[in-house]
Write a protein that binds this DNA or RNA. Structure first.
Lengths: 205, 205, 205, 205
DNA sequence: TATGAATGAGGCTTCATTCAT
DNA sequence: GATGAATGAAGCCTCATTCAT
């Protein structure tokens, strides 16, 4: 639950930096940007709060590192093999799994999204990341469109926005995220392409 | 654009209170809770910052009033007449319209959602509101379920969560909210119940 | 020694502001800009250090007010009546008197001079003030030049710079300032225009 | 412009120490004591800031070394040959030349002068140096006094203070220092001892 | 000698809040 | 109700200094 990730081999040199970023993620997840305090982050990794400035000149720099970290952790490559409907389900399932495993990452993303409204640089970076996701989703939906993988009424362009909206909305309540995302893939995929098992099951094949 | 409607009785005493709440809404929409400052709110309505405390004993009280205000403005009763599919579309269309007309209200809601994670009282209130919405949506989806209004695969319970997720996600980018919500209703409503021509659809195949 | 100046009638409203400026002058005189601390200035007038910001938004603003105050206190109009040589002596005598009465003012001026090298705005203001002084001195020296008031070899333009240099140098050691300035006027004024009394006396007429 | 001369023995070990002192001089000249930072000084010579403490245990020690350096560089022996008036002119000309060649040295001196008001040890050292200068000037003026080298009205004792004041004042604006110092020697030296044509005089009447 | 990590004191500033008028 | 003055806690950041390597 804490320190939720990779110990680098040998307690390496810049572990401290990593540790600070991870502590900041925890802190943001728990208290929001509103409650992000360098002192607390520092205490979390066990150093004096002024030492934080040894690694990050400014608080904003730490936040920038948090963005990079979170983005890095969340970048899920959409699988390229298989049929479009399968790839979509895999993608959404993977996201749902991540949400339940590491909900803090998504909370922080939501905070960043909101903060990006007032921070131009942040917005630029986030939009860049989102553009990548958007185009990947676009390609997927278009390919499925050609092969008749989708439910009638699914528009490839609008579908992208729908997926993004669901993910962004679902991340706020991880406990229900799986349900929403599963339901979404159900509705997007053509009935005859969808495995005919238990309607509420998460993984049907 | 500002001071949106809702005159209380006769330009009365409580207008100032209202004004403060609305100014706070603007401020939160623009700067987040992170940047909410009583001084700025006070300046926005043209009074001294210490006078704010005559209306709201504490900053948190102002925030509470903001929640009430926003909730009040956003409470859209799901139309009760007509067929389920029509009612769903009406509801989502109404939300989309509101999002483009008064995006600040939704931004503030998103901020409140995030903040409610750290504020128990806030969470309680928000969950109460959401419970009402959830049950209304549940009733709607169940009724449509019985009458075969929905697309195959739509689960009434999961569908509620999906709708909520989409709305919560869509409110972050008002310019795309319409697209997402329209796409959602398309996918939820059974193909044969959906009007053949849809003036708001971007791409009809 | 402290509070060296005019009590405004009735302990007026913005006495506090004045008091802060005067405390800052004392502090700068004693500790230099290097040692100027808002906390100390605040303590000197008996208020909390954060209250200083009620009067001066920023430390720099306080320094700006100090400049204005010092400049105001130091602006000595060169007497316009009498002969040029008498006016010069009066001016230098007045400066010498001020230096011994209120040495802090001059110390602060010296600090400001030095600081103006790194602060463009400060330099601009100081140069403006100095330009006024310089031109007044120029007019005085030119008029004496025509009437043969000065010692041979005195150049009106260079003489201005010499006077300024002496004043700036003398202010650093108030105890010797009188001697330097008297000697200066002696050397500048033609021998036959200078009263034939005791050569080291400060005031010979 | 930087690294002004004075190689210690064979590029030796102490070069680093020298370099630090010179960097400190530059830094003080540019930013004042107010802005003197060990980190910047260290960066200027290309070493880590904590390494500075291997050469100077404390910041104050570095400042002390700066004083020694500056004093050393500025100690100009008053020429002992020639007539008093010539020696005076040589001395003042040499100072003027130094001011235009290495203005930083004089800026630092001015800073030190101001700082010496709050630092007893510093003041003691500076007063010692000044005492040497003062007595040398005193001897010079007395000798000229006997030989009738000076303008009427020049008092040997007061003259010393005048010279010191001019030098201290002139060093603040190197571009005008030459003018002031030349004018000073003109006024101090008896008219019949002053060369009829003076190549450096701006205006010869 | 040189470094990088760490510290702790202290500085300026912000801000909600209180109080007297 | 309204104001301005005042407070005190807290935040970010700076910097000289120390220490282990």
């Amino acid at each position: 639950m804490a320190k939720d990730s990779r110990r680098v081999g040998g307690d390496g040199l810049k572990d401290r930096r990593q540790g600070l970023v991870e502590a900041a993620v925890r802190s943001i997840a728990e208290c929001g940007f509103e409650g992000l305090r360098l002192r607390i982050v520092a205490a979390d990794v066990g150093i004096d709060h002024s030492t934080v400035h040894h690694y990050f000149a400014t608080k904003e720099d730490l936040v920038a590192a948090v963005l990079v970290y979170v983005t890095d952790q969340l970048t899920t490559t959409i699988p390229s093999e298989n049929s479009p409907e399968r790839r979509l389900r895999r993608h959404l399932d993977a996201l749902a799994a991540l949400m339940s495993e590491r909900p803090q990452l998504f909370t922080v993303t939501a905070e960043l999204d909101l903060r990006s409204r007032r921070d131009d640089r942040l917005r630029a970076k986030i939009e860049l990341d989102e553009a990548g996701w958007r185009s990947a989703l676009g390609a997927l939906l278009r390919s499925g469109h050609e092969s008749g993988a989708w439910a009638p009424g699914l528009d490839p362009i609008a579908g992208v926005e729908l997926i993004i909206a669901v993910v962004k909305g679902a991340r706020l309540s991880p406990s229900r995220a799986g349900v929403s995302l599963t339901q979404l893939s159900r509705l997007m995929i053509a009935a005859d392409r969808f495995p005919a098992t238990n309607p509420t099951a998460k993984r049907g094949d």
